[in-house]
C-alpha cells in the first residue's frame, strides 16, 4: 500500500524531498527540521510525502506522524490562498481579540483550523505572535496588522475580497 501512495508523489517533489533528506544526512535526529523543510516546499505535509519519508528514513509512518502531529506548526491539509492567523495571546485577549476572531468567523463562515470550500481562506487562532504592544493582531500571508478593531478588520477583509475578484 505504501508504495502506491508514494507513487502519487510528483517526480519533482520526490527529488526535492530527497535533496532535503540528504542535506540532513538521512538522520532521524533531524526529523523535525526535515519536516519543516518539506512543509516549506509543499505548503503542507501530504500523506504521500510522509510515506516517502518513512521509506527513506527507515521509520514507520506512525512514528513520523507521532512527531509531526505533536507540533502545531505542521499542517496535513492544503491551506487556502490567504492564511489568516489571528492572535489570541494574553495581551490580545484582554484587548479584544475574541471579538476580532468572532467577526472574521462570521465574515468568512469558517472556524479556526478550517479552510473555506473554495480554498481561498484558511483561518487559524494562535496563542501569541509576540507583537503584544500593538494588540490585537492578525497576520495575513506574513503581513502583520495591529491595533485591530472590527472596523479595521472589516476593511482588510473587504480589500482581500476585492483582490480575489480582480
Amino acid at each position: 500500500m505504501g508504495q502506491n501512495i508514494v507513487n502519487e508523489l510528483e517526480y519533482k517533489d520526490k527529488n526535492d524531498i530527497l535533496d532535503i533528506i540528504n542535506q540532513y544526512n538521512k538522520d532521524k535526529n533531524n526529523l523535525i527540521t526535515i519536516l519543516q523543510e518539506v512543509q516549506k516546499i509543499l505548503g503542507f505535509l501530504p500523506h504521500n510525502a510522509i510515506y516517502f519519508l518513512s521509506e527513506e528514513l527507515k521509520m514507520s509512518p506512525a512514528e513520523i506522524y507521532g512527531v509531526a502531529t505533536f507540533y502545531t506548526q505542521f499542517k496535513f491539509e492544503e491551506i487556502g490562498k490567504y492564511l489568516i492567523v489571528c492572535c489570541d495571546g494574553t495581551a490580545c485577549h484582554v484587548k479584544g481579540s475574541p471579538l476580532i476572531l468572532n467577526f472574521i468567523e462570521n465574515y468568512l463562515g469558517i472556524k479556526p483550523g478550517e479552510t473555506s470550500n473554495n480554498k481561498i481562506y484558511t483561518l487559524e487562532s494562535v496563542a501569541c505572535l509576540g507583537c503584544c504592544a500593538i494588540s490585537p493582531v492578525c497576520i495575513i500571508n506574513g503581513d502583520t496588522y495591529g491595533d485591530l478593531t472590527t472596523n479595521k478588520i472589516k476593511r482588510i477583509l473587504n480589500k482581500l475580497e476585492k483582490e480575489i475578484k480582480d
Binding site: N29, I32, T33, L35, Q36, V67, F74
Partner: peptide, 26 residues
Amino acid sequence: LKKGAGAFVCGEETALMASIQGKRGM
C-alpha cells in the same frame, strides 16, 4: 540553530532536548 515547531511544553528543558533529538517534545 534548531527551530522549534510550535509546542509550549518544549520550553521545559527535558522536553526541549527530546525535540532537538527529533522526537515528540515530552
